[in-house]
């Protein structure tokens, strides 16, 4: 088990090294005024020299994304639970959710700015729109696919609908909810950056725009690196939390095979 994990880490590290190396070689040989490439060295340089700007902008974007994520999760959870409880509204909310999801956020953003002004609200709503859909569909699906045997067991036990929900449906759905967070959280970050493009003073999205306008190519890439790092961190956070809270989730599929730390 250990050696397989080590080998997989080694493979990932090698792949990254190769990629960065190739990038570096390519960027170094394409270096002309006005070119679109920056070497990893230049990107790193920008990250170091402008570090306080990156941190400040990242904090702004993260705040928007976090609020949007919380909003999205709250609405999605309420809708999914309501749909589960009152089956009649389930189809309607599903259709509305699909309709909203199919709206291009980039087109929606200017309209939202017109309604709510260029403040925090717009960013939170747009970040939330990015995160909303994966949470909703995963939770609805999870609540619907509670193992039939577990439901029959509760029926034999004379459980009421609240007990069934609390003892069986919810515990089976929660790990899947956390898996949906792994895609929803990065989506919220992307959504927040997108919203900033329509009008904002600070944030990674604005930094991206500014560096583009100023032809500061290293800063442009460095901003991308920061944004990706945040997304990966968000993904990782929910993966770790999911494994921590729901250890059986990994052991269900693994059966009797050894597990890390077991």
């Amino acid at each position: 088990m250990k050696s397989r994990r080590a080998r997989s880490l080694l493979l990932t590290a090698t792949a990254w090294l190769l990629l960065v190396g190739a990038w570096w070689l390519f960027a170094a040989h394409e270096q002309r005024p006005g070119t679109i490439w920056a070497t990893p060295g230049q990107i790193l340089g920008s990250l170091v020299s402008l570090r306080s700007a990156y941190v400040a902008n990242a904090v702004v974007t993260l705040k928007e994304a976090a609020l949007g994520f919380i909003l999205a999760v709250s609405v999605a959870v309420v809708l999914a639970l309501a749909g589960e409880r009152y089956k009649k509204i389930a189809a309607t909310t599903q259709r509305a959710a699909v309709a909203i999801y199919s709206l291009p956020i980039i087109a929606l953003a200017p309209a939202l700015v017109l309604w709510t002004g260029p403040g925090l609200t717009t960013k939170v709503v747009i970040a939330g729109l990015g995160a909303f859909f994966p949470v909703l569909i995963n939770l609805v699906q999870a609540l619907r696919t509670t193992p039939a045997g577990a439901l029959e067991l509760m029926q034999v036990g004379g459980a009421g609908s609240w007990q069934v929900f609390r003892r069986v449906e919810l515990p089976y759905a929660l790990p899947i909810l956390f898996v949906s967070f792994m895609t929803a959280a990065p989506a919220a970050i992307t959504g927040a950056m997108l919203a900033e493009w329509v009008g904002a003073n600070a944030g990674l999205g604005i930094q991206l725009l500014n560096s583009m306008n100023e032809f500061d190519i290293p800063q442009l890439y460095a901003t991308l690196v920061v944004a990706s790092a945040l997304s990966v961190a968000a993904w990782l956070l929910f993966r770790v939390l999911g494994r921590l809270f729901f250890p059986w989730q990994t052991s269900v599929g693994a059966g009797h095979h050894g597990r890390e730390g077991a």
Partner: peptide, 24 residues
């Protein structure tokens, strides 16, 4: 009822599975 499949709840220990219906 003893089901054809074990139908145990994976997050509960053996004991907690046995006492589930008593809790209900």
């Amino acid at each position: 009822f003893v089901f054809q499949e074990p139908t145990l709840l994976p997050w509960r220990s053996a004991l907690q599975n046995v006492t589930l219906l008593l809790e209900l």
